[in-house]
């Protein structure tokens, strides 16, 4: 359990991540300089183009959600940012330098993927190992307390539950007091309660002044964490906007209905239809305006109508399909969004 209260009390032990006073060029201060910058980045894997001319900048203190379906290029982008891979063309800068140079990663915090931790080492040992790489890390006690892991300090990581491993993985990202935290799907596979406490711990750390980039294919996670959302699909940046603007753009509904004897072209012409597939008389319609669609369907002979939130993946496909689908927005309240991924 993470016992972080919603409003963190003043704790002298919680130091803000250090921002060294680097002299910037005339007219800009160092604290405005992007902590992370990608300019025209392309990366291929054989014939597959994972990233296609992507440009992105993250500034100090930002909380950015990187959203996209599986295979969209999120993880590839992060691997360039963390220095694991090199772009084929374009430039990636981390704190103004090449992320492949270890010195430029001193203020970067990341997590192992797939909760891959050395199974035979204990929680305390893994924490100390990672902390040993940084000039001014949190103490073992401090970081484990932030994530409610204090009681597990002597447990081997191989014996932890999935949720405990996840918490430890995120704790490792923060132990070095990074100014930029990059998290790839931090809460995949966690139950609701564990997910919420992990989010709270991340918000607390962000409140200390760090920039956070988090990828997810759960809209709920991005909603809970991010203020700015970058949507990636097919290796490109599709949307880079505030959270609320993005939520409006992806609020598609999936309407499934049987329309005996209906003509496909006629159904496609109904108001609010963004895309459809059919199986006999059964139509599966992606609707940008479900209300309008249902009103017109009601004038036809119909059976077994179902209305659900479309998955983000479907929403992204609609976004990429054309400007007409992307531009059509519904006045749905964002809080009712539910995304099945």
């Amino acid at each position: 359990m993470i016992s972080t209260p919603a409003v963190p009390p003043a704790q002298p032990a919680r130091r803000a991540p250090q921002v060294p006073p680097v002299p910037g060029p005339a007219g800009s201060t160092a604290s405005d300089a992007p902590v992370l910058e990608a300019v025209g980045v392309t990366r291929r894997f054989g014939p597959t183009v994972a990233l296609d001319d992507v440009s992105l900048a993250v500034h100090p203190g930002e909380l950015v959600g990187l959203l996209g379906p599986n295979g969209a290029g999120k993880t590839t982008l992060l691997s360039l940012v963390t220095g694991l891979r090199r772009p084929d063309s374009g430039v990636v800068r981390l704190f103004g330098g090449d992320p492949r140079d270890p010195a430029n990663r001193t203020s970067l915090g990341t997590t192992p993927q797939e909760t891959g931790l050395p199974a035979t080492l204990t929680v305390g040992e893994v924490t100390d190992f990672v902390a040993g790489h940084y000039p001014d890390p949190m103490t073992r006690g401090e970081v484990l307390e932030r994530f409610g892991l204090t009681d597990l300090v002597r447990r081997q990581t191989g014996g932890l539950s999935g949720g405990q491993k996840r918490r430890l993985a995120v704790a490792l990202a923060l132990v070095g007091r990074p100014r930029l935290v990059v998290l790839d799907e931090p809460t995949t596979g966690l139950d609701v309660e564990a997910r919420h406490s992990l989010w709270q711990a991340l918000r607390d750390y962000h409140a200390d002044g760090a920039a956070v980039v988090v990828t997810s294919h759960y809209l709920e996670e991005i909603e809970a964490l991010a203020r700015r959302v970058v949507v990636i699909g097919g290796g490109r940046v599709l949307v880079d906007d505030t959270l609320s603007a993005v939520i409006d753009r992806v609020s598609l509904r999936r309407v499934t209905v049987t329309l005996p004897g209906a003509d496909e072209a006629a159904v496609r012409a109904l108001p609010g239809v963004s895309d459809l597939t059919r199986d006999g008389d059964r139509f599966e319609i992606l609707a940008s305006d479900a209300d309008a669609l249902v009103r017109s369907v009601a004038t036809l002979p119909f059976q077994g109508i179902e209305v659900r939130g479309a998955s983000l993946e479907e929403a992204f496909l609609a976004l990429t399909a054309g400007p007409s689908a992307a531009g059509a927005t519904t006045p749905t309240s964002p809080t009712t969004q539910e995304v099945s991924a």
């Binding site: 691997s79 963390t82 220095g83 694991l84 270890p102 010195a103 430029n104 990663r105 001193t106 970067l108 990341t110 997590t111 192992p112 993927q113 797939e114 909760t115 891959g116 931790l117 050395p118 990672v130 790489h133 940084y134 490792l172 070095g176």
Partner: peptide, 14 residues
């Protein structure tokens, strides 16, 4: 081949 290895490569050590 283990996921911990790429993680260690993101730490500030050459």
């Amino acid at each position: 081949a283990l996921p911990f290895d790429p993680y260690v490569r993101t730490l500030p050590a050459g």
